[in-house]
Design a protein around this nucleic acid. Structure first.
Lengths: 186, 186
DNA sequence: CACCCTCTAGACCGATTGGTCTAGAGGGTG
DNA sequence: CACCCTCTAGACCAATCGGTCTAGAGGGTG
């Protein structure tokens, strides 16, 4: 357990703060003080400033979540089971800090109207998730893998918003139950 | 078509800007210049400042969307049909400006970590929508109206995020199609 | 007319914003 | 030793932030 590099510490705290307060709700000063680094370090590692830091942090968390999805599907016997496991895993992931954190994609999307590159990052991450889900849908023999993948993406994002609203993982857990119970997927 | 009151003009432009850029992404100066009013007017009508303006604007748009849901269900023969109509209506609603606007609830949720009252407003609006949907679910004889209502809420919110990401109503339209085709609800 | 009240108008405030810039600490290498 | 390069440190900047405050326009009423 060595000390993480300055760059990683910046990515980590930035990701967490952006997900908690949104892109425009966080100032560089807050990120730097929480990371314990001066401004010079930030602009050394991320010459593009706040936006580049946000892009990298979003891609990074996007990868983590993709791995969580992968783990959720290894122990699944059906696509629906994998989807339900994903919901529960994300509920766990989002609630592991004192405040329930938003999906990084959502945190970027609001600021995207001012900054097209942030929208691009959001689309990239969403697309990676969707392709992975479509892969599992194919693997489990879903009739329309693309539709099944998008449907899971939609439901997870929606339940994540409800979870954010009442600051608990319950909406995601309830979605998992519904997925296992209802005949939504074959 | 008389000139709208200053208060309503503030609500209107504030709601639109918050949905486009997020709560923290909009400054009072931008709202006021777009509304064509001085700062004094804002603090006269909304002594609570930016936060009160955001709360009122969110409740206001929340009511508008609730009416849209109501219209979507009057011409529906089944709950699934009503839900599908809702998706299409929201796709229409969100795309009627040059930029696709976010759900007002989502726009408030990111800023809610700093401002608990914004989260409260978001919860209030979500709950109103959910109760209305549950009413229709009961009316159409769904086995578990609460679950059906939450599921529709989840799907609409999720598809709205995807719509925001690719700046088109297509994800909401595809959700409507899936709702009509898949055996997700009885 | 005078008085009042609603609302507009915008100057002004301290705090904070993202970003730039210079200085130098510190390790590796010739 | 000198030199270089990476990275830290933080002062500094103009611009903008949300909010407060005073002044007065303008209609209604006595």
């Amino acid at each position: 357990m060595s000390e993480p590099s300055s760059r990683n510490r910046l990515l980590n705290t930035a990701a967490s703060l952006f997900r908690r307060k949104g892109y425009d709700g966080v100032g560089l000063a807050e990120i730097l003080s929480e990371a314990g680094l001066p401004k010079g370090s930030l602009y050394h590692h991320f010459p593009g400033g706040k936006r580049e830091l946000a892009e990298e942090a979003t891609l990074w968390v996007g990868g983590i979540i993709e791995n969580v999805v992968a783990e959720a599907f290894v122990e699944a016997g059906t696509f629906r089971e994998g989807a339900a496991n994903t919901c529960r895993a994300i509920a766990r992931l989002a609630t592991q800090q004192e405040r329930l954190l938003a999906c990084p994609v959502m945190s970027m999307l609001q600021a995207a109207s001012q900054d097209p590159e942030l929208r691009q990052v959001a689309c990239t991450v969403l697309d990676k998730w969707k392709r992975r889900l479509a892969g599992y849908a194919t693997q489990f023999g879903c009739a329309d893998p693309e539709a099944a993948a998008e449907q899971v993406l939609v439901m997870v994002q929606g339940a994540w918003i409800l979870a954010l609203a009442d600051q608990s993982g319950a909406p995601l857990e309830r979605l998992a139950e519904r997925l296992l119970r209802d005949p939504a997927f074959q």
